[in-house]
Simulated assay, not measured.
Amino acid sequence: MPERPAEVGATAPAADRAVPCRVVVCRDCCCGTVKVDGDHAAQTARLRRIAPTRISECLDVCEQANVIVVQPSAAGRAAGARPVWFGLVNDRDATEDIADWVRAGGPGVAERPAILDLYLIAAPRRARTA
């Protein structure tokens, strides 16, 4: 049986669409407040320009504020990548370094720049067991 031509404007099947990296930004009791220096609104806006970004309540690593978690894309997960947690992301340069890595593909897709190792933190136990 011959294949029917695709309809104009039809979208690809869900399995064929790429799921991009996602970013989670902690904004609760310490992160994103006057307790921590930085332009929190600008940081969040910058990340939202390059990836789907969700604002979270406390991620339980307040001593590491501001916390950003980069979740792998579908391709990254297929390669075995796990979410990467960053803490003390309190300046524009650190945010830009994370944004550049996410734009390049993030966990499991693009090699993480060595400068980001300065910000790596362990996920809290409740996140590791979830």
Rank of each mutant, 00 (worst) to 15 (best):
A51E: 13
S73G: 01
H40D: 09
G76P: 07
R17I: 14
V61A: 15
D28P: 01
G76N: 07
I50F: 00
G80T: 03
K35M: 15
S56H: 06
P13Q: 00
A74C: 13
C30P: 02
R49G: 15
G87D: 10
G80A: 01
H40W: 10
V36T: 13
V23C: 00
T11Q: 12
R27Q: 14
G9W: 03
G32R: 00
N66P: 03
V61F: 08
R82M: 08
V84A: 08
V19R: 08
R27P: 03
V19Y: 09
A15F: 08
I55S: 15
A78C: 09
A75W: 02
V70A: 07
A51G: 12
R22H: 07
V67E: 02
P20Y: 01
S56P: 08
E63P: 05
Q71V: 11
A51M: 05
C62L: 09
T33H: 06
V24G: 02
V34S: 15
C62N: 05
V25C: 14
K35R: 14
V8N: 07
E57C: 12
A45F: 02
E57D: 15
D37W: 05
P72S: 07
A6Y: 07
T33C: 02
A51I: 11
D39R: 02
R54Y: 12
C26Q: 03
V23A: 01
A79F: 06
A74T: 14
C26A: 07
I68N: 04
Q64L: 11
C21M: 04
V70G: 09
G38C: 01
R77E: 15
R82D: 11
A81W: 05
A78M: 09
P52K: 06
V84S: 04
R54D: 13
L47K: 04
E57K: 10
A75R: 14
T53K: 00
S73V: 02
V24L: 11
A75N: 08
R46W: 04
A65F: 00
P52L: 10
D37V: 09
